[in-house]
Design a protein around this nucleic acid. Structure first.
Length: 470
RNA sequence: GGCGGAGUAGCCAAGUGGUAAGGCUGGGCUCUGCAAAAGCCCCAUUCGUCGGUUCGAUUCCGACCUCCGCCUCCA
């Protein structure tokens, strides 16, 4: 079955059959603050896409930009009386830490807007646009893209600017621009910018947001991309602008496939600081949720459907992952002494295990893919209960999981919890009491261990102890 | 106003012109000194509303209702 994805450009499911490495550009964060979980939903969708393409045998050259100069970063740096670069550095580092926590596979490159070679690339593009009449310098000294010079403007968002122009002209007076929808390529320096600015043929200033992505995408991936991703709110005007800039410079189609993920909502509402439902990754970690659990929640819903983020959802994720962990532990124990190295299992009973990957082939149908995982868990547990699962099958399942996990990245955390001496001593005492069938003492020791923050569970042969989580 | 997305069991969420995947919660059972854990089993005559097409629609068409997003730099 071929890969097929929904293309924002055509609003249709399209077959995707790339030849050679896939050139993929993903819009990254503006590093003026800690990224919130809504931002990470988009990055997670992109991670899932990259991982699935790679499992399907493709090489993915992915670039993610870091916007480290714009109104918000300048405002933030000014507020803290820090140089811009120092201010943004902190949030860049935080971003990479968060990405690792969510197990996001690193991109090939993370170009920053202020890198000298990127500024140079932007200036070069603007120059070409000026020469070809696609851009002009206005009275405010800023350089703007002339959208009337690009007839395809609006094709991605499916907006007809001609139709909107009449109502927009009315308030046009206050702008230096020829048309309200013209967007800035180069913003002339003003006092707010302080020490921030670069020399250009149009005077001191800084790049507009859209030209960043165009220039960096072209510099690192070439004139034509296979896939360009982002959140739906980037469709207009950001991606529309990128198309305009690139295609006016190169004369070639900028990106073949545009993929956008829907927004994340919190408790059914838009996430906002004032509503008090604003979550960063770190705020959730502080509350005791793990990166893996948050990854599961953000990945669990198809990328084009709005995701309603709730604490109940996190709880459900925790339970689902626990079920997965128990299954893996069971298979690992069962195969522990087994020397056979069985190949990846394709089928278990009537379950077709490859359908996990086939579900993802269809526009990343994660729900159907996860259903395969849970069907498999139930079926193999059933067989284990009846002692009907062979060692070869168990190993084959583990191999299958290994492949599945390359996409999901949901393997359990390695248990690094060190058992305190006090607890292990009590466990030894309890073991003895149990051997003597001294239940009263056994229960007393269980309570005592619980007070130290550990809970004991008795299995057939041994005591299992885990740190209690709250 | 323009463009776009969504409404499926208590919650989350797939899916198909032919009679509803999966996860969580809940209930039952097995195991167990007890407890817990774990595993298994069960849980929508019904898919926002009303019409239409059809032998048959949750799935196609039309209208309507509700929610959400974008429309000057928020993923």
């Amino acid at each position: 079955m071929p890969l097929s994805f929904h293309n924002t450009l055509t609003r249709q499911l399209e077959e995707f059959s790339p030849s050679g490495p896939i050139r993929m550009y993903t819009c990254g964060p503006t590093v003026y603050n800690y990224a919130h979980i809504g931002n990470f939903r988009a990055y997670l969708f992109e991670d899932l896409l990259q991982r699935h393409l790679e499992v399907r045998g493709h090489t993915v050259d992915r670039v993610m930009n870091l916007t480290d100069v714009d109104d918000k970063t300048i405002r933030g740096a000014n507020a803290q009386k820090l140089p811009l670069a120092q201010y943004t550095q902190h949030y860049k580092e935080a971003f990479f830490t968060d990405c690792a926590t969510l197990r996001l596979r690193p991109a090939m490159a993370y170009p920053a807007a202020t890198d000298p070679e990127n500024i140079a690339a932007m200036i070069a593009m603007i120059k070409t646009l000026m020469e070809r009449g696609h851009a002009y310098q206005a009275e405010d000294h800023s350089v703007y893209f002339r959208i009337s010079s690009f007839s395809n403007y609006g094709k991605l968002a499916h907006v007809d600017l001609e139709a909107q122009r009449s109502c927009v002209r009315i308030k046009n007076d206050e702008y230096a621009k020829e048309e309200v929808a013209d967007f800035a390529l180069w913003k002339a320096w003003d006092e707010e910018d302080g020490a921030v600015g670069w020399e250009s043929p149009w005077g001191q200033g800084r790049p507009g947001w859209h030209i960043e992505c165009s220039a960096m995408a072209r510099r690192l991936l070439g004139d034509q991309l296979d896939i360009h991703c982002g959140g739906v709110d980037n469709i207009f005007p950001h991606h529309e602008a990128e198309i305009a800039q690139c295609e006016c410079v190169t004369g070639k189609t900028f990106a073949r496939l545009w993929m956008h993920c829907a927004h994340l909502m919190v408790d059914g509402n838009k996430m906002s600081k004032s509503a008090g439902n604003f979550y960063t990754l770190r705020s959730l970690l502080e509350r005791g949720w793990s990166g893996r659990e948050i990854r599961y929640v953000l990945m669990n819903v198809h990328y084009r459907i709005p995701l309603n983020f709730t604490l109940e959802g996190l709880e459900a994720a925790r339970q689902s992952l626990h079920r997965l962990d128990e299954w893996l532990r069971r298979l690992q124990e069962y195969t522990a002494d087994c020397k056979i190295i069985a190949p990846l299992l394709e089928q278990l009973g009537i379950l077709q295990l490859s359908s996990f990957f086939e579900a993802l082939d269809q526009d990343l149908n994660i729900s159907a893919a996860l259903a395969v995982v849970f069907d498999t868990i139930r079926e193999s547990n059933r067989l284990l209960d009846r002692a009907e699962l062979t060692l070869e099958q168990a190993q084959g399942l583990l191999a299958w999981w290994g492949k599945v996990n390359e996409v999901l990245a949901l393997e359990p955390e390695p248990l690094a919890e060190i058992l305190p001496r006090e607890v292990s001593d009590l466990l030894a005492l309890r073991q003895q009491a149990r051997a003597e069938k001294n239940w009263q003492e056994s229960d007393r020791l269980r309570d005592q261990i619980a007070e130290l923050g550990w809970s004991v569970k008795d299995t057939k042969n041994e005591q299992k102890v885990v740190k209690r989580c709250f």
